[in-house]
Design a protein around this nucleic acid. Structure first.
Length: 883
RNA sequence: GGGCGUAUAGCUCAAUUGGCAGAGCGCGGUCCUUACAAGACCGAUGUUAUAGGUUCAAGUCCUAUUACGCCCACCA
């Protein structure tokens, strides 16, 4: 029976292996939930769909790392793991890209027309739509591509229509002219969420509003052109300065339109002049005032933000041009007072960046309150949990103050609203127009739905809803929604609302929110800053595993990640390190077949008892950390265990039994080496799937299955052994002490030295494990001494607890140097001892601290005191009256 | 204006229910020891932002302050 199936290459050729392994996983169907037993509990994540024409950025790399980790972990735990991938049509973003392409071709969307434009967009989607998917594959995403969805697929479009029609029939969707945020460049309405307010330098214009019959009221504005749409001047009703004017009339400058002076408590007497021009057609506050006072609405703008005929002589001018012209004309009339430089918040479109204009427009709205109430209740009741918890507060606040959602967009790329207008103005809501009557035609609604409307259905629409498909029955509700906190409102809240409304179930039980990926200085990544990090460059350079490991170990839930690419390089070295460990283990498997699993605890030597005990604690710890979503800490612990404990200590120690032990010792050691490695590759697989899968293929593998399908390790408490850990720790400390002394005295590393050891209370330990010292700190000969009386003078000494090693380094050590060194050591101990003694001398501590904490301190004190005693007697013997 | 986050080694980050403040990178030194120089070994580096408080015990809990960042909000 051959143990070594394949010869390992010297290093991991990730460029060759990643594609091959991914293809193998996909081809063999391991990404599909059907590989689990029929009765397996499902675990489902809906992938946040990237924009269909987008390219992979670090945010995607982070979500793939996290979601793939969760999926692979649950798959290994035996669940029917399903990660549903897909892409989003991303209405505005995609349309803008295609419009830009048309512009470059010297044409425009208007010129080619709606039908042609959509055809071109679909072509664009076909061309670039596959790109992001391939990039997700390169990151190792173990999603079920057979279940991939696109938001404009027939099935999903059907779900969207179904939802719209249902909500309409429930009286929750209405259409009407309202003041909305209008994006003049995109020529569409956008929702409140799509408007970003940035504090910018601007100007506050002061002028006198002329009153009918003479006199004036001083007012100020940041947008003088809106004067043309004023329908009132408002003052505070209790303001003695202006009170008397309420009920009189003012005249709109230049236009000379007659408007009332009204009193409204909204006016802040302290701000500006204490009087306010009211433009209900172009300002949200003024709109409210207008509603209260039945003021007329005047829209002075066209869809591209040029002024319309209501602006009189300014009609046809751009809004900013008109602003200047009007102001100059007012100056000529002697109405202007001054212009003040101020900083104020300017509303800009999230997409185009242009200034958004509040404008009256006929749009479709969703009455959101009933849905929001359910969404609030679900989180409050704990049926949905948000990680980290602090975002629950943010979520509540948003939903408690939510306004109706403007769901229509004047775009072409998207789900067309399923509404038809009869030739007599009749409105019909349905997927298809009613049957034609003679002489009567139905015109379809031009508008499409906000992209987020379809995204809100994602967890169930991707599984087949509204059809009661087998997938929907088996995999809905999903489990975890993992996404960025920046789309908590845009997406997460809306999925919860829609999910609860249409399926009566929360669409997922946990929301895990990650942060933004920034550069190593914490700056936002942007083209203008020139700090763009392309994840694919990093994947090309180091492979996907190091990038994943870096993102996972560098992030905590809800916090931004500052990506330092030197960490990616370090994790690439970690990949090499575990490669080399595996190389060592597989080279030393021997020719005899080995039993699988670990030998019984009783058959293990001390180092093996130590490493298996440590391994079991690691497994338990990783499990606990995973349960609380602390993936980063889990990854670091596995890394630390493998590199520091397994490689630096156990592998080095194992060489003795492997090379010099008897057959039994060899076999046991081999089984421990393989066992630890096997377990750690499993633990590490969700973090670094490629290299672990590749390494797995070199281990003696009795199942023939790839690692992706291996079971998640269970702890085995029989291997927990605190005594072994303590003994081993003592030996490790002693080895370190000896190395330290060698280094301090600059003994050449190749020079073998002799150690004389007073083994204190552990004579058996040294009898059995003195070989460690030869291997780990190049001690050629060890003699055990009964006590310190026979210790040589010309020697350095190292004490750990009641054990002391004497190193007779005649050429290197002079007595006074050694005495200096020892007294420094002693001083350190004195300090530590006094601290612990003080602690233990405190009755309150002993009485109130947890017993195990007190016990730990006592043990520590005993150890420190024993070391101190050893050093004291050494100093007494060696240094005489020197100290 | 309201809410939230962050502040720990030169840099990037950890630290479980409060229980000896740790990694990596970088830095100094030694070594090509038969898995690994993409490595091994040794070392230096901290008033855990500031000021109080609670506690036997505080990086961790409470209060205030400062700096930076984010979210929400109708001051023209």
């Amino acid at each position: 029976m051959e143990q070594q199936a394949k010869q390992m290459p010297k290093t991991f050729d990730f460029k060759e292996a990643e594609g091959r392994l991914y293809a193998m996983w996909e081809r063999e169907g391991w990404f599909k939930p059907e590989i689990a037993p029929k009765d397996a509990e499902p675990f489902v994540i809906s992938m946040p769909p990237p924009n269909v024409t987008g390219a992979l950025h670090l945010g995607h790399a982070l979500f793939v790392s996290l979601e793939d980790l969760m999926t692979r972990y649950e798959r290994m735990r035996g669940k029917a793991a399903l990660w549903v991938p897909g892409t989003d049509h991303a209405g505005i973003a995609t349309q803008l890209q295609v419009e830009k392409m048309l512009h470059d071709e010297g044409t425009s969307r208007e010129q080619v027309g709606r039908e042609e434009f959509l055809a071109r967009t679909w072509l664009w989607k076909e061309k670039y739509g596959g790109r992001i998917e391939d990039q997700l594959r390169r990151m190792g995403a173990s999603c079920d591509w057979d279940r991939e969805r696109f938001t404009l697929d027939d099935g999903l479009s059907n779900a969207v229509q179904e939802v719209f029609i249902t909500l309409y029939n429930q009286g929750l969707i209405y259409r009407g002219p309202r003041l909305v945020n209008w994006s003049p460049g995109l020529r569409t309405a956008v929702s409140d969420l799509e408007v970003e307010r940035e504090e910018e330098p601007g100007k506050l214009y002061y002028f006198n509003y002329p009153l009918e019959g003479g006199g004036s009221i001083p007012v100020s504005t940041t947008r003088p052109e809106t004067i043309l749409g004023d329908t009132a001047v408002a003052v505070h009703p209790d303001d003695p300065r202006y009170q008397d004017l309420i009920g009189k009339f003012a005249l709109v400058p230049v236009l000379n339109r007659r408007i009332p002076v009204i009193g409204d408590e909204y006016v802040d007497r302290e701000f500006g002049t204490g009087a306010l021009k009211v433009t209900p057609g172009h300002d949200f506050n003024d709109y409210e005032i207008g509603q209260r006072h039945n003021l007329p609405l005047i829209n002075i703008m066209n869809k591209d933000a040029t002024l319309n005929q209501n602006a009189g002589i300014y009609a046809g001018m751009d809004r900013f041009e008109a602003r200047e012209k009007l102001w100059n004309d007012m100056a000529a009339l002697g109405l202007t007072v001054k212009i003040e430089d101020i900083n104020h918040a300017v509303p800009r479109s999230q997409r185009g960046g242009e200034i958004v204009e509040p404008m009256i427009s006929t749009q479709w709205f969703l009455k959101i309150q009933p849905l929001a109430d359910k969404a609030l209740a679900a989180v409050r009741a704990g049926s949905i949990r948000i990680v980290p918890e602090r975002f629950e507060k943010v979520y509540y606040h948003w939903l408690e103050n939510i306004e109706d959602w403007c769901i229509s967009r004047q775009l072409w790329w998207g789900h067309r609203i399923p509404v038809w207008y009869g030739s007599d103005g009749e409105v019909y809501v349905g997927k298809l127009p009613p049957k034609d009557r003679p002489g009567y035609t139905w015109t379809p609604e031009e508008d499409v739905l906000d992209t987020w409307f379809s995204s809100g259905l994602w967890p169930f629409s991707t599984l087949g809803w509204p059809e009661q498909t087998p997938d929907l029955r088996r995999f809905y509700p999903t489990d975890v929604m993992e996404t960025g906190y920046d789309i908590l409102f845009f997406w997460v809240a809306r999925m919860i609302m829609m999910g609860l409304w249409f399926t009566d179930q929360p669409p997922f039980h946990t929301v895990y929110l990650h942060g933004l990926v920034r550069d190593k200085f914490g700056r936002k990544i942007s083209k203008t800053l020139g700090n763009v990090i392309d994840p694919l460059d990093l994947v090309d350079q180091y492979g996907a595993d190091p990038l994943r490991m870096t993102l996972l170990t560098g992030s905590t839930p809800g916090n931004d990640v500052n990506l330092d690419t030197s960490r990616v390089e370090r994790n690439w070295r970690f990949v090499n390190k575990i490669w080399q460990m595996t190389n060592f283990v597989t080279q030393n498997l021997g020719d005899e077949p080995l039993e699988s699993g670990f030998p019984a605890p009783a058959d293990l030597d001390l180092p093996a008892r130590w490493i298996t005990s440590r391994l079991n604690k690691l497994v338990a710890s990783v499990e606990r950390l995973f349960e609380s979503y602390q993936y980063g800490e889990a990854g670091r612990q596995i890394d630390d265990f493998l590199w520091t404990e397994f490689a630096d200590w156990y592998i080095e120690i194992s060489k003795y039994p492997l090379y010099q032990g008897d057959a039994q010792a060899k076999a046991n050691t081999r089984r421990v080496l393989i066992g630890v490695l096997d377990t750690c590759l499993r633990l590490l697989h969700p973090f670094m799937p490629f290299v672990t899968e590749e390494l797995w293929s070199f281990l003696p593998n009795r199942t023939g299955k790839p690692l992706i399908a291996a079971s998640w390790p269970d702890g085995d408490s029989r291997y927990e052994d605190d005594a072994a850990e303590a003994d081993m720790q003592m030996l490790i400390d002693l080895v370190r002490g000896i190395r330290n002394v060698r280094d301090e005295y600059q003994v050449e590393p190749s020079r073998k030295i002799t150690a004389l050891i007073v083994p204190g209370s552990s004579p058996k330990l040294f009898a059995a494990y003195e070989y460690l010292f030869a291997r780990l700190c190049n001690v050629g000969t060890i003699n055990l001494l009964a006590d310190e009386s026979s210790a040589p003078q010309q020697a350095a000494s190292v004490s750990v607890g009641d054990v002391t090693a004497y190193l007779p380094l005649a050429d290197f050590v002079d007595v006074s140097a050694e005495c200096d060194r020892l007294s420094k050591e002693r001083a350190k101990l004195t300090e530590q001892i006094s601290r612990v003694e003080k602690q233990l001398g405190n009755e309150q501590f002993v009485a109130r601290a947890r017993p195990d904490v007190v016990e730990k301190e006592r043990t520590r004190l005993a150890g420190l005191k024993a070391s101190a005693e050893q050093i004291d007697s050494r100093i007494a013997g060696l240094c005489g009256d020197k100290t």
